[in-house]
């Protein structure tokens, strides 16, 4: 009998400690999304808080899809969403193009060098995101380091306007998110057996063929993980377009921010967030599946 009690005790104890993070996340992560959903179907009013309650005085349900209808029919919003996704996608491709050879180079270097190279990739990640974006403001300015340098060289006479353009946003995105691409790529490439490539070459493949037939397919989990880790946050990015982009660079993260804080239209901001969530939920699910499969294979 005492054994049964013991077993139940240890299970109860497990449940108890699990309840701590569980409750926390239910209250502070899941519940907020329910509230966003609720507010996104309300109408804005001049009050505190500035939206209509879900139930009227008589207890009748008062919700409307007006915000969503507006988002889907308003051309500006469609363009904003499209542009956000496209810029994030292009930045992801650039990160992949730059990150892959770097990750490959790190994975193929001697263990001593490898540690230092990895440290140097991780280091900027620990240094403030905001300051890293800020650093580019000093470089891209009309009278910034790059233009000054080019003019000093005599390559150009007038400064090239780079700041407050889409180009600056791309630079900012690629710069900030490059480590997120390199680290998962490195992890898969490092695990890959180098003999495979040598075996392929031994069997007559050229280095290029060996890359396409062996390295690239085996690196796919890393490519998927890295791409999604760049794409998902880049889609909703707020700081980079705000600091580096022009006033007309309407990206969704910034629009959401402005809609909420400047126009004080909480219901519309909420529906903007819901639509953005729908856009990124698919990549998030793919990412988690990919990670789970990767973890299974590793064990």
């Amino acid at each position: 009998m005492s054994e049964q009690i013991n077993k139940q005790l240890s299970e109860a104890w497990q449940r108890f400690i699990l309840a701590l993070p569980y409750t926390w996340l239910l209250i502070f992560f899941l519940a907020p999304f329910a509230i966003i959903l609720k507010i996104s179907v309300a109408d804005p009013i001049l009050a505190q808080p500035p939206f209509t309650p879900s139930f009227g005085d008589a207890g009748e349900l008062q919700i409307s899809a007006d915000n969503y209808v507006f988002l889907l029919t308003d051309k500006l919003y469609a363009i904003t969403y499209l542009k956000s996704v496209m810029m994030a996608a292009i930045a992801t491709l650039f990160c992949l193009a730059i990150g892959f050879p770097i990750a490959y180079g790190i994975a193929r270097s001697t263990p001593g060098t490898r540690n230092i190279l990895l440290l140097l990739i991780v280091l900027p990640f620990w240094i403030s995101f905001l300051l890293r974006v800020y650093a580019w403001m000093g470089l891209l300015n009309n009278y910034g380091v790059i233009n000054n340098f080019l003019m000093w060289l005599g390559v150009i006479e007038q400064p090239i306007p780079m700041m407050y353009t889409d180009f600056a946003i791309y630079i900012g995105l690629v710069y900030s998110y490059l480590p997120f691409m390199i680290l998962p790529l490195y992890a898969t490439l490092e695990r890959m057996n180098l003999d495979l490539v040598e075996a392929a070459q031994d069997l007559g493949a050229t280095p290029a063929q060996a890359f396409w037939n062996i390295t690239w397919p085996l690196a796919r989990p890393g490519v998927i993980a890295g791409s999604l880790l760049v794409f998902i946050p880049a889609t909703g990015e707020y700081v980079i377009p705000y600091l580096l982009g022009g006033p007309d660079s309407l990206l969704i993260g910034r629009v959401l921010f402005d809609e909420f804080f400047i126009n004080r239209d909480w219901p519309l901001a909420s529906s903007v967030a819901v639509v953005l969530l729908v856009l990124v939920v698919v990549p998030i699910v793919i990412l988690q599946r990919n990670q789970a499969r990767d973890a299974e294979q590793a064990t």
Binding site: P32, I232, I284
Partner: peptide
């Protein structure tokens, strides 16, 4: 539980931020 634990890591910050603010206001 797994979803709850891991999602905040990849969720765009503007969404998490807005959601939490609305929670606090409510």
């Amino acid at each position: 539980f797994t979803g709850l634990v891991l999602s905040p890591m990849v969720m765009p910050e503007v969404i998490t931020g807005l959601a939490l603010l609305l929670l606090f206001v409510s």
